[in-house]
Simulated scan of single mutants.
Amino acid sequence: MPTALRLFRYVAIAEAFSWAGLLVGMYFKYIAATGELGVKIFGPIHGALFVLYVAGAFAAARVARWSLGTVVLGLACAIPPFTSLWFERRVIARFRASTAGSAAESVAA
């Protein structure tokens, strides 16, 4: 798997974990009203990982030759919590299937 796709995968997973941390922090800040430490910690972490996810999506799109629709879907999946995981698994599976198919064709030729 190309480095750009591998890094995109790691960032997508980390972005989902940062969403979880931010949501827990928001619960304690707004629902339990016990403090805002979780938001202060996970807010900037999630923000940085969001930016890395977007940059990683563009890099992975270039390497894997995603269609414009796939790029738009990947960028949209950065917004709702945990959808980056779904998208990452989808595109990695498609990439592996396409490279396995092309490898089988070259062996048969």
Rank of each mutant, 00 (worst) to 15 (best):
P2S: 04
T3I: 14
T3M: 12
A4Q: 05
A4V: 11
L5E: 01
L5C: 08
L7W: 11
A12G: 07
A14Q: 00
A16Q: 02
A16M: 05
W19T: 05
W19H: 04
W19V: 05
G21C: 03
L23A: 10
L23Y: 03
V24R: 09
G25P: 01
G25S: 06
G25V: 00
M26T: 11
M26S: 14
Y27S: 08
F28K: 00
F28V: 06
Y30G: 06
I31Q: 14
I31V: 15
A33V: 06
A33H: 12
A33F: 09
T34W: 13
T34D: 13
G35W: 10
G35F: 14
G35S: 08
G35Q: 11
E36D: 14
E36V: 02
E36Q: 14
L37P: 02
G38Q: 13
V39P: 01
V39H: 00
K40D: 13
G43W: 03
P44S: 10
P44K: 03
I45C: 02
H46P: 01
A48D: 01
A48K: 08
A48Q: 06
L52W: 06
Y53K: 06
Y53A: 08
V54D: 01
A55D: 08
A59M: 12
A60P: 06
A61E: 03
A61V: 01
R62N: 13
R62K: 14
V63E: 03
W66H: 09
S67C: 04
G69C: 08
T70M: 15
V72P: 02
A76L: 15
C77S: 07
A78L: 09
P80N: 15
P81C: 15
T83K: 09
S84R: 00
S84G: 10
L85G: 04
L85R: 00
E88D: 11
E88I: 02
R89V: 12
A93W: 13
R94Y: 10
F95Q: 09
F95T: 06
F95Y: 15
R96L: 15
R96S: 14
R96F: 10
T99F: 09
A100V: 09
G101I: 00
G101H: 04
S102I: 10
S102A: 15
A103T: 08
A103Y: 12
A104Y: 04
S106D: 13
V107I: 13
A109Y: 11
